[in-house]
Design a protein around this nucleic acid. Structure first.
Length: 583
RNA sequence: GCCAGCGUAGCUCAGAGGUAGAGCAGCGGUUUCGUAAACCGCUGGUCGAUGGUUCGAAUCCAUUCGCUGGCUCCA
């Protein structure tokens, strides 16, 4: 076991070690199932997996047995040996392994490399650690089905996932992080904090926002609207259903059918639930001739859309069938595209900062194989996106061929408090829809010219963003977002009147506060307020009543003692106004 | 949609062929208390649904709905 020495880089290559662990696991599995078919077994973030074809399905009880087998192999201190063989001998070596044979056939070189540890041999590019003994601390975590080569038309193999780290401490700390993530799971907190629910009776992927979650959402929406209006957006509302023909014209019926719900019959006409908001905004734009002087026109809407999702993919609020996008469409001239994109990026950065997200990964997705529009339009708009990123001094990576069929896009992934990625803002240039719908403006010469259209969402969807926020804050929202900002806790019934006066004053001041008037002891009320993650607890007893003060306890447990009610109100109002993240 | 696991009271869970259980929550009392759970009592479930096996099913089997972890796909 080689460990890091302070100031030095670890001697072990973690990725090679994890990959080696995958081979060891494959050997252990073959020990248990000699006829096991081998798929692939790479290193992944935090660990590794290996795909197997087995005579029976694995159960969780198999994992400890496999782990034991692995530990024996690790203890045996067997060297990993690389050898290069020509394809013919490789085919011979893996003659009983159809998946390996398929891989061999696809490798371009005449020779392939094989790694052996003891009796186990695997087709593999490497690299590996020198010996099985160099594999650090590991744990098998889960079993899952996985299609061979990720193709749902091919056989499903059994995948075993494991995590592996250089030291037991590093593994323990990773497992602790996983446990922390489970504590912050928005599905769990959403239920506990009564933010939202999903109900079997209503159907999967359909969200019920309870008063507390709705409050958080309302605060976000108010902030969002105010900020958009400040930046020259105009708010619109559009219908949730529309004639199917509209979606045929747009191309959605052809390109997006698998996400659309079946048409409904309305007096012999077919209508569908909208999967996107863009068409509504286009129809508003097209109600009259538009002058070049009116552009850019920015139409914004908290638009609720419905998309069919396959039954296995829903996940809490993060993946649902009905959701509300913080959507907007910018209709502009091509020379306005870049400044508009810069404006969107600035808005995105401003809003994300307000919620405490400081780290992003930005991807610029370029033209896919299947696309519409001219190459020239693609090049021009991709360049506009790129220049906008450069001008905004935002580092980015190119995602070659990952754009949507109608145009290139920028995706911003944000990192939450635990360093996990979430899909954030997305900005897409679209020259398909303006063309299909003939979205034009009249230029200086009095001629019709096609507009350039930008689709953009900053938060993504209210549902997914809510999921992200809940996990980011661990359910403890900053004061400006907290569903309840203060709990007023009378010590005895004789303080109830004063408590209600305090409550009235706070509500008057625009704060969300409520008295806990239950016939319970103060300790119980504090406990409940803590569990509900209310930022401020205001204990009021004889002393406070006599002096028109409140005794302030924060969610952190910190007690700042008695404070005049007026001072407290001013302090919280300021925290709300500045959207202070920490109090 | 596919693979695997799981659905028992509002919540968290025990029970694994022989009369449905606990804690918390809720309700009714008593207690009026100074910074994370006062005390006593009570209510509450066709065991996800449907069908089957059995003298007898929460328990075994089939189908179905939902959830969880993945695969594929995505705001």
């Amino acid at each position: 076991m080689v460990s890091a020495t302070p100031g030095n880089k670890p001697k072990i290559d973690l990725e090679a070690m994890r990959h080696s662990a995958a081979h060891v696991m494959a050997q252990a599995v073959q020990g248990l199932f000699p006829e096991a078919g081998l798929g692939i077994g790479p290193a992944i973030e935090n660990g590794f997996y290996y795909d197997f074809e087995l005579p029976r399905t694995l159960t969780p009880e198999d994992l400890p047995k496999i782990e034991t087998g692995m530990r024996d192999i690790v203890a045996s201190n067997t060297p990993f040996q690389r050898e290069e063989v020509d394809k013919a001998s490789a085919r011979q070596l893996f003659s009983s392994q159809p998946y390996k044979l398929e891989l061999i056939d696809e490798l371009p070189d005449a020779k392939v490399s094989v790694y052996r540890q003891g009796s186990f041999a695997d087709l593999c590019r490497g690299p590996h650690v020198a010996s099985t003994a160099e594999i650090g601390a590991f744990k098998l975590t889960s079993i899952a089905g996985a299609y061979w080569r990720g193709d749902e038309h091919r056989p499903m193999l059994q995948r075993i996932y494991g995590v592996a780290f250089e030291t037991q401490e590093a593994l323990d700390s990773h497992l602790a992080k996983v446990a922390e993530a489970a504590r912050r799971d928005h599905r769990k907190l959403g239920k506990e904090l009564e933010l939202f629910s999903l109900q079997e009776e209503a159907g999967p992927g359909l969200v019920f926002w309870h008063p507390k979650g709705a409050t958080v959402r309302r605060v976000i929406e108010d902030f969002w609207k105010a900020e958009h209006i400040k930046r020259g957006y105009e708010m619109v509302y559009t219908p949730h259903v529309a004639r199917l023909d509209l979606w045929k014209t747009s191309g959605h019926w052809d390109f997006y059918r698998e996400n659309l719900y079946s048409p409904m019959d309305v007096e012999g006409q077919e209508y569908i639930l909208k999967p996107m908001n863009c068409l509504g905004h286009i129809l508003i734009f097209k109600t009259r001739k538009r002058s070049y002087r009116e552009l850019p026109w920015r139409a914004a809407e908290m638009g609720t859309v419905y998309r069919y999702e396959r039954s296995g993919v829903m996940h809490g609020l993060a993946r649902v069938r009905g959701f509300t996008q913080d959507d907007a469409h910018i209709f502009c001239r091509s020379d306005q595209l870049q400044p508009e994109l810069v404006g969107v990026l600035e808005l995105a950065r401003f809003m994300l900062t307000a919620f405490g997200f400081e780290e992003y990964d930005i991807k610029l997705s370029t033209r896919p194989d299947k696309y519409t529009g001219s190459l020239e339009m693609w090049d021009k708009s991709t360049e506009a996106l790129r220049q906008a990123l450069v001008q905004s001094k935002l580092p980015y990576e190119i995602d070659e061929g990952e754009g949507v069929f109608y145009g290139p896009k920028i995706d911003i992934k944000l990192k939450d408090a635990l360093g996990r990625d979430w899909q954030g803002p997305t900005i897409q240039v679209d020259f398909n829809l303006p063309q299909r719908f003939g979205v034009v403006y009249v230029n200086e010469q009095g001629q019709d010219e096609q507009v350039v259209m930008v689709h953009r969402a900053v938060l993504g969807s209210m549902e997914r963003f809510m999921a992200c926020l809940v996990e980011h804050y661990g359910g403890a929202f900053p004061v400006w977002l907290a569903p309840q900002q203060a709990a007023i806790i009378p010590i005895a019934d004789r303080h109830l009147d004063y408590a209600h006066q305090v409550e009235a004053r706070l509500r008057e001041a625009g704060l969300r506060a409520a008295v806990d008037a239950r016939a319970e002891r103060m300790n119980e009320k504090i406990r409940v307020a803590q569990v509900e993650k209310i930022p401020f607890m205001l204990v009021v007893g004889d002393r406070e009543q006599a002096s028109a003060t409140v005794s302030v306890r924060r969610l952190s447990g910190e007690q700042s003692g008695s404070q005049s009610l007026a001072d407290f109100i001013a302090m919280v109002q300021e925290a709300v106004r500045t959207r202070k993240l920490m109090i």
